[in-house]
């Protein structure tokens, strides 16, 4: 009888997770994604990675976006993670060889929820995140775009709407849907603090410049979400 009671307590206190997110991560995801770090310290290592590092996923992504994306994955980087592997010579210059871009596996809802829950626990860079203090404020789309393009030159590598901007960096009209605002601020402040071999340069933005860019990404992120 006592044993039955203990069993009952065990079952009632256990999280009702039929799916083991960590098991899925280790079985299916670790092949392409680093779940333990550290970030690549050499180009050879960086080029060998087939998917974005996930060992700081809990510092980086929005959970609700991650769960939805895993069920319906779509390309975020127009030229893939290692853009150099997906180029071909075109008439006007280099082009993305879209046939070589890999597709991400689709997860069932329960798996996506379980995997997201595990990923959100991975927070080795709370130190970097805690340095970012975002103040409320607004910026017009026009002013934001001017700074983004003309003052900082970010448009060289990033698209701010579908089919407008560069190809080698991730699309940014969905950045605010995907990423935590403090992560965006921290990455702009120092891409190399997150990934020493990052393709993204440190543009040496001021605190105010970083705040403006995070607000701008929020503006175009909301616009993009509303357009869907």
């Amino acid at each position: 009888m006592k044993r039955l009671f203990i069993l009952a307590v065990l079952f009632s206190s256990a999280p009702v997770l039929a799916v083991d997110g960590m098991a899925i991560l280790q079985r299916d995801c670790a092949v392409c994604h680093s779940l333990t770090g550290p970030a690549a310290q050499t180009l050879k290592d960086a080029w060998s990675r087939k998917g974005p590092d996930l060992f700081y996923a809990g510092n980086k992504y929005r959970a609700e976006w991650m769960t939805a994306w895993l069920q319906k994955p779509q390309a975020i980087r127009p030229a893939g993670l290692n853009y150099g592997e997906h180029l071909k010579a075109g008439v006007k210059g280099d082009e993305v060889d879209t046939a070589t871009l890999p597709l991400h596996p689709v997860l069932a809802k329960a798996d996506a929820v379980a995997v997201t829950a595990e990923l959100m626990k991975l927070k080795p860079h709370d130190d970097l995140i805690s340095k970012e203090k975002l103040e409320s404020g607004s910026i017009s789309k026009q002013m934001g775009e001017m700074a983004f393009d003309k003052f900082y030159g970010c448009l060289a590598c990033h698209q701010i709407e579908p089919e407008f901007g560069g190809f080698s960096g991730p699309e940014l009209y969905t950045a605010a849907q995907r990423l935590q605002p403090e992560f965006m601020a921290s990455l702009i402040r120092s891409p190399q603090a997150w990934n020493p071999k990052s393709w993204m340069p440190n543009k040496q933005l001021t605190d105010m410049g970083i705040q403006k860019m995070v607000r701008y990404l929020d503006v175009i992120g909301k616009e993009s979400a509303n357009a869907k």
């Binding site: 010579a89 280099d94 560069g166 393709w199």
Partner: peptide
Amino acid sequence: ADNYRAYCVQCHGMEGNGKGVNIRDMA
């Protein structure tokens, strides 16, 4: 040559001729 391939090619091109994958919308 590796650093060039990693960081410069995106704008300056695989052949270094200024025709990188990012140039379409550059002013």
